[in-house]
Nucleic acid binder design. Sequence first.
DNA 1: AATGAATGAGTTTTCATTCAT
DNA 2: GATGAATGAAAACTCATTCAT
Lengths: 214, 214, 214, 214
Amino acid sequence: MAGTNTSQEHSYSRRKDERPAEIMNAALEEFSTNGFAGTRLQDVARRAGICKGTIYLYFRSKEDLFEEVVRDRILPYLEQLEAIGENVEGSARDILRQQLKIIYQQLVSTDTRYIPKLMIGEGNRFPHLAEFYFREVITRMHKLLRSVIERGVANGEFRPEALRWKPQAILSPALSAAMWRTVFEQFDPLDIDAFLDTHIDLLMHGLLNREYTG
Amino acid sequence: MAGTNTSQEHSYSRRKDERPAEIMNAALEEFSTNGFAGTRLQDVARRAGICKGTIYLYFRSKEDLFEEVVRDRILPYLEQLEAIGENVEGSARDILRQQLKIIYQQLVSTDTRYIPKLMIGEGNRFPHLAEFYFREVITRMHKLLRSVIERGVANGEFRPEALRWKPQAILSPALSAAMWRTVFEQFDPLDIDAFLDTHIDLLMHGLLNREYTG
Amino acid sequence: MAGTNTSQEHSYSRRKDERPAEIMNAALEEFSTNGFAGTRLQDVARRAGICKGTIYLYFRSKEDLFEEVVRDRILPYLEQLEAIGENVEGSARDILRQQLKIIYQQLVSTDTRYIPKLMIGEGNRFPHLAEFYFREVITRMHKLLRSVIERGVANGEFRPEALRWKPQAILSPALSAAMWRTVFEQFDPLDIDAFLDTHIDLLMHGLLNREYTG
Amino acid sequence: MAGTNTSQEHSYSRRKDERPAEIMNAALEEFSTNGFAGTRLQDVARRAGICKGTIYLYFRSKEDLFEEVVRDRILPYLEQLEAIGENVEGSARDILRQQLKIIYQQLVSTDTRYIPKLMIGEGNRFPHLAEFYFREVITRMHKLLRSVIERGVANGEFRPEALRWKPQAILSPALSAAMWRTVFEQFDPLDIDAFLDTHIDLLMHGLLNREYTG
DNA sequence: AATGAATGAGTTTTCATTCAT
DNA sequence: GATGAATGAAAACTCATTCAT
């Protein structure tokens, strides 16, 4: 009986703790479809199965909710990527491939892809959030990337020119895939696996034919 | 008197013809900063130096203005790219380089970069416009790209694997650059020329060191 | 054990009995600063050191609380004034002076001065309360005053014209002082003793110079 | 026809100029009955015969409207009083009587009496406005009063003690009358003329019987 | 054609009140 | 009795759109 009691209490407090997460999930869906200004908190509430006023028990304002959604979603994903960069022992190619796989699985294929979409669409109206995203997300991803490339150049796997490449360019196919799925998926569904293959093949070998001597 | 009249009409009608373009330019700036829902027609009017009601002499609604802005801006740019694809005689590499240069000069460096930004941010609320963009912009750009790649593969310049590549991936660095300038330029300005170099080097050679035999 | 129990019960019920008074004190402070509509029960609760819902254990509604605050505060003070009117034996001047002293000490100098302020500010929205206040407070104060004046006129101390005076006018400096302290105290603090002196001097002698024969 | 035209234009621009005044009149009535927080702009608009949004063409916010109402109403009235103080040649008694008459006619008998009511009820939430009222209204009225009293004392009409009186006390019957009419008029209508008589008699002669030698 | 005052539907936010714990 | 999370009605304020001038 004590066990049952404990279990109930746990389930109760778990629900309580999940409320903000439920709201943020609902909010992400609405924001990603309608943008910040186009989203009605009424709809967020309905989607979360609560009523309007309840949102204000957990978030100070619509702006606040928006910022929390972005921060809450992107950070865990980043930590996972960094863990891979640190832990794996292998060739630079393997690490890079593994990281790209994670990116396509976690960012492009889940609703986390809405986060970069929202930063693009709303970043200008949330300069504080854009600064956070630049500092805590972009900068960290670029650092990650630089680390792998340096390792590859050091052991002779990668061309030394890559040290001067802009990291945005290297990751850009993933961004394109995420944006495509957000906007044009209905007209032409994207095959994520095939896209990842393109990304890796392009990134590793480039267009030019080695045998070509014309 | 007829002459005078004609002259007046000409000067007058010239102003008349420019009015919609002035409005659309003002609208693009507002939409690109504030998004569709976040933009006030009042501000568009002020920026265009006219008054609120005048917009409705040329556009039926805010939605209509938004769609016209997107259509009006992106098409001329596409036609220019297609002309290059058709006219230039040279190696596939040269044509591709030249097209990328145009893209970075016309799309990334001017306010035309706001068009893809707006499609990403607002596409979901304008399915009709998204369908237009997919059909008239994306599809045509991909066709353009496929044509150059086929030419390069045919003459041995390019690796045959490139025929299976997703065109989005090949162009994605340009999208990244355009989005960067839209959102993060203030935190870390992008050197367009260096970025183009990265794009071309990455696209042509890839990461791997051809001498590497490890 | 019975003793312990009783003691506990006593202490407990004492707390219980004080609860409504604590709430009303907190409410008076909030109402007096923010008015009825501008006061949040949340703030009343916080000030009383309890939580929102608890107020509803003692008061049916915000309106009810407001009315109780006014009734609860003003009646004991009135009873005290009436006691003085009945008990004191002396000249009419002395009785009147003594009553005014009480008014300035009890009404103007304590937070009881917020009661007339609230009647002025909110009386229109509480017609039932205004009627109570008129009947149970104003009328009784005027009766009190009339009684002293009649005594003074009867024994020749006061001018007979005073029998026709409006009682509001005689007491009005006290109201002014109470309102001043409520609104303008921060800009120009009121010296209550000096004000009482003015009130009594004005009330007794008036402006005119007896010696003047111009 | 030109005349008609001009007349129309005049009537048109007159209406335009009156819009803010119409709104302020409607607002004063609502504010005076319901207080600041208790007033709905919807009701102000309805009373002014316009719609909600129109208020915002002339006033930035509800707060702004409230402050403008107070400022707009009280200043002309003050100027009138000051003019009397300066222009009239006569005994101090006559000037004072004349000023009091104006106060009862203009302040107590018209809806201008709502202004002091609102300052009492809402002054705490509008510290800026309270400071304005203290500085521009109260201070000027007290100066006015002091000037008359000094004149009366100088020529021997008034008792020199009056120089030390608090001006609030001298004017307080007028405040009481204004407040009475605002709150208790429905239970016991106030005879303004009789009240003014009381005020003047009290102010001039006081209570005490000069013949009394007890 | 151009204006900008007016409209009123729509959205965010607040807060009295309830009720399960 | 006490709590405080949840509710949803109500109100300030905005802004696309209209229309008399």
